[in-house]
């Protein structure tokens, strides 16, 4: 461990912008997005793949950025919570539903939840309430007791917030 770590060049698109960097092989995507790319909306709640707070969207799929190495995202298109709303600031329907339904308190778990639901409802996918709830079982929220998240999911399934 005391030897200098080998470094690699990576290139990826983050929230629509190109990012080039030379990084240590051992660096997680989550650490890279926060520390090197400046997207501090990516939250690390456990760094062992259980809490879901670190979830980002990699090539359209929700991914736990604490379990993926940054070098593995070479050439990928990454979206973090900062890149989910429209350019003019208009909320994505997922963000709007979470806000309307008081689905957050401290907001630490929220970025991961936003990314999972955004990936799941992308394009013309029409996930059912059950599918979204099942996806949510991989996210821990210590504050809310999940009531608002459930209601937001009901809303999204009904297509109301769109």
């Amino acid at each position: 461990m005391s030897e200098p770590q080998s470094s690699f060049r990576v290139e990826m698109t983050i929230n629509g912008r190109a990012k080039h960097a030379t990084i240590e092989a051992r660096k997680s995507l989550g650490d890279f997005l926060r520390d090197d790319a400046g997207y501090t909306g990516v939250h690390l709640g456990c760094e062992h793949g259980v809490c879901g707070a670190c979830t980002v969207i990699v090539d359209g799929k929700a991914v736990r950025s604490c379990l993926m190495l940054a070098v593995q995202a070479d050439g990928c298109e990454v979206t973090t919570v900062e890149g989910v709303a429209q350019a003019d600031g208009t909320f994505h329907p997922v963000q709007a539903a979470l806000r309307e339904e008081h689905a957050l308190q401290c907001g630490f778990c929220t970025p991961g939840i936003v990314c999972t639901l955004t990936a799941l409802t992308k394009g013309d996918q029409k996930p059912t309430e059950e599918q979204m709830l099942a996806a949510m079982s991989g996210h821990i929220c210590r504050c809310t007791g999940y009531q608002g998240i459930r209601r937001a999911i009901t809303r999204l399934a009904a297509g109301e917030a769109a």
Binding site: T40, T80, E82, F91, C106, G107, P111
Partner: peptide, 21 residues
Amino acid sequence: QRSLRKEDPRLLTGRGQFVDD
């Protein structure tokens, strides 16, 4: 009233400011 929270816009868009940020 169930007023919408003032805190939410920044927290929903990743613009909160937690200590590690």
